[in-house]
């Protein structure tokens, strides 16, 4: 292929959309932010609310690193707009537990060495909490399947399975074999 390519009109030049006050309820606290509609929940957390525990791995819902809980349900925060989450109850990794006051999943991830670089870890843990809230995973295979929305490039899946299983086990009356 050769020749001169004319510039493709990628789009018109528009002024940036105005930011407006948005209140997001994150980890039980109201955050009063100035956001334009085009800010994703993920970017609102990381760049505007200063909560960098939630990770950006692909920004397209293809990796799960940005998983947070909204009204107790796990979602990819990169694929929703912050303004659409006004009024919702958002929980991030910072809200699950802190150093010295670890959530059982956080402790289990450490015990089972369920991570290496740690970049997917907050998303994995939020996802695991979502899995527990859903109550649909009763076997190892079901945990594997229902944790498959979180990619770990380091390949810590054995540890992740064991960590999640340990906490699910403690919470369940009986885990089907």
């Amino acid at each position: 292929m050769s020749g001169t390519s004319t510039p493709k009109s990628a789009g018109q030049s528009l002024p940036p959309p105005p930011a407006a006050p948005v209140t997001l309820r994150i980890n039980g606290q109201d955050h009063h932010l100035e956001l334009a509609p085009w800010t994703s929940l993920l970017d609102a957390l990381r760049e505007y609310a200063g909560l960098t525990g939630t990770k950006k791995g692909c920004d397209h819902g293809q990796c799960g690193a940005c998983t947070v809980l909204v009204d107790g349900k796990r979602i990819n925060s990169c694929l929703t707009l912050a303004v659409l989450q006004e009024g919702a109850d958002i929980t991030t990794i910072e809200g699950l537990g802190q150093e010295g006051n670890l959530h059982p999943l956080q402790q289990a991830f450490i015990d089972h060495d369920a991570f290496q670089c740690g970049y997917c870890t907050p998303g994995q843990i939020c996802s695991a909490q979502g899995l527990i809230n859903e109550g649909k995973a009763h076997t190892e295979d079901e945990i594997r399947e229902l944790m498959s929305g979180n990619i770990c490039r380091c390949g810590a899946y054995v540890g992740i399975l064991n960590a999640v299983k340990e906490v699910v086990d403690k919470k369940s009356i009986a885990l089907r074999s």
């Binding site: 819902g61 979602i75 990819n76 694929l79 979502g130 899995l131 859903e134 498959s148 929305g149 979180n150």
Partner: peptide, 9 residues
């Protein structure tokens, strides 16, 4: 289809 997170959205 997709993942649990995406199915929740």
């Amino acid at each position: 289809g997709a993942s649990p997170q995406l199915r929740n959205m």
